[in-house]
Amino acid sequence: MECKEIETILLEALSLEEVKVTQEGTHYKIIAVGDCFDGMGRVKQQQTIYGPLMAHITSGELHAITINAFTPTQWKREKVFNM
């Protein structure tokens, strides 16, 4: 599955400001930024991302996924610390 296709699915399904998907072999890393994650625990954030992708996960098209979800404020802070 193409990274851009995953980004499109997530942007259309969720109220996200930004989505970045990278791939190394069969492993995908998803960074999602949106106000929708405000007040959610990490598990709920991941469930929110998994939801729109579930058909692709159950079919085996998507296999290994790492998810990092941030509010816009958290994302700004994360980018500063990781520069």
Score class of each variant (00 low, 15 high):
residue 72 P to Q: 08
residue 53 L to F: 00
residue 31 I to H: 06
residue 65 I to C: 04
residue 27 H to F: 13
residue 27 H to D: 12
residue 18 E to T: 15
residue 38 D to H: 09
residue 49 I to V: 14
residue 41 G to T: 11
residue 71 T to L: 06
residue 35 D to N: 11
residue 17 E to D: 15
residue 29 K to H: 14
residue 52 P to R: 02
residue 28 Y to E: 08
residue 41 G to Y: 00
residue 70 F to Q: 06
residue 33 V to F: 12
residue 16 L to D: 08
residue 70 F to Y: 15
residue 66 T to S: 14
residue 28 Y to K: 09
residue 74 Q to M: 14
residue 69 A to Q: 06
residue 56 H to K: 13
residue 26 T to D: 13
residue 19 V to A: 11
residue 19 V to K: 09
residue 65 I to K: 03
residue 33 V to L: 11
residue 65 I to M: 06
residue 19 V to W: 15
residue 18 E to A: 14
residue 71 T to I: 09
residue 60 G to Y: 05
residue 29 K to G: 07
residue 72 P to A: 11
residue 36 C to K: 09
residue 39 G to W: 00
residue 28 Y to W: 11
residue 35 D to M: 03
residue 21 V to P: 13
residue 65 I to Q: 06
residue 35 D to C: 06
residue 50 Y to E: 00
residue 20 K to C: 14
residue 37 F to R: 00
residue 57 I to Y: 03
residue 54 M to Y: 05
residue 21 V to T: 12
residue 19 V to Y: 15
residue 19 V to T: 12
residue 40 M to F: 13
residue 48 T to W: 00
residue 27 H to K: 10
residue 61 E to D: 12
residue 37 F to G: 03
residue 46 Q to W: 01
residue 36 C to G: 09
residue 59 S to E: 10
residue 60 G to W: 04
residue 59 S to M: 01
residue 45 Q to R: 12
residue 68 N to H: 15
residue 27 H to V: 13
residue 63 H to A: 00
residue 72 P to S: 12
residue 74 Q to W: 12
residue 75 W to D: 09
residue 48 T to E: 05
residue 16 L to F: 13
residue 28 Y to V: 08
residue 23 Q to W: 02
residue 21 V to W: 07
residue 59 S to N: 07
residue 52 P to V: 02
residue 40 M to H: 03
residue 56 H to P: 01
residue 35 D to K: 05
residue 54 M to G: 01
residue 66 T to L: 06
residue 39 G to L: 01
residue 19 V to P: 13
residue 60 G to S: 01
residue 18 E to R: 15
residue 21 V to L: 09
residue 58 T to R: 03
residue 75 W to Y: 15
residue 52 P to N: 02
residue 49 I to R: 02
residue 55 A to S: 14
residue 36 C to T: 13
residue 74 Q to Y: 09
residue 51 G to Y: 02
residue 41 G to A: 06
residue 24 E to L: 14
residue 51 G to M: 04
residue 56 H to W: 10
residue 68 N to K: 13
residue 57 I to Q: 03
residue 45 Q to P: 03
residue 56 H to C: 07
residue 21 V to M: 07
residue 53 L to I: 07
residue 31 I to C: 12
residue 18 E to F: 15
residue 39 G to V: 00
residue 45 Q to V: 07
residue 21 V to S: 11
residue 64 A to G: 07
residue 26 T to W: 04
residue 25 G to A: 04
residue 76 K to S: 11
residue 35 D to R: 03
residue 29 K to E: 15
residue 24 E to F: 13
residue 72 P to D: 09
residue 37 F to I: 06
residue 73 T to K: 12
residue 41 G to I: 05
residue 16 L to C: 10
residue 61 E to N: 03
residue 55 A to K: 10
residue 16 L to V: 15
residue 56 H to V: 00
residue 31 I to F: 14
residue 76 K to F: 10
residue 29 K to R: 15
residue 51 G to N: 05
residue 44 K to C: 04
residue 75 W to N: 13
residue 44 K to P: 01
residue 54 M to C: 04
residue 72 P to L: 10
residue 40 M to D: 05
residue 50 Y to H: 11
residue 67 I to T: 09
residue 26 T to C: 05
residue 27 H to Y: 11
residue 26 T to V: 07
residue 21 V to K: 11
residue 49 I to G: 04
residue 53 L to C: 08
residue 60 G to Q: 00
residue 30 I to F: 09
residue 67 I to D: 05
residue 63 H to R: 05
residue 69 A to P: 05
residue 63 H to D: 01
residue 49 I to C: 01
residue 20 K to Q: 14
residue 41 G to W: 01
residue 54 M to V: 02
residue 43 V to T: 12
residue 38 D to T: 10
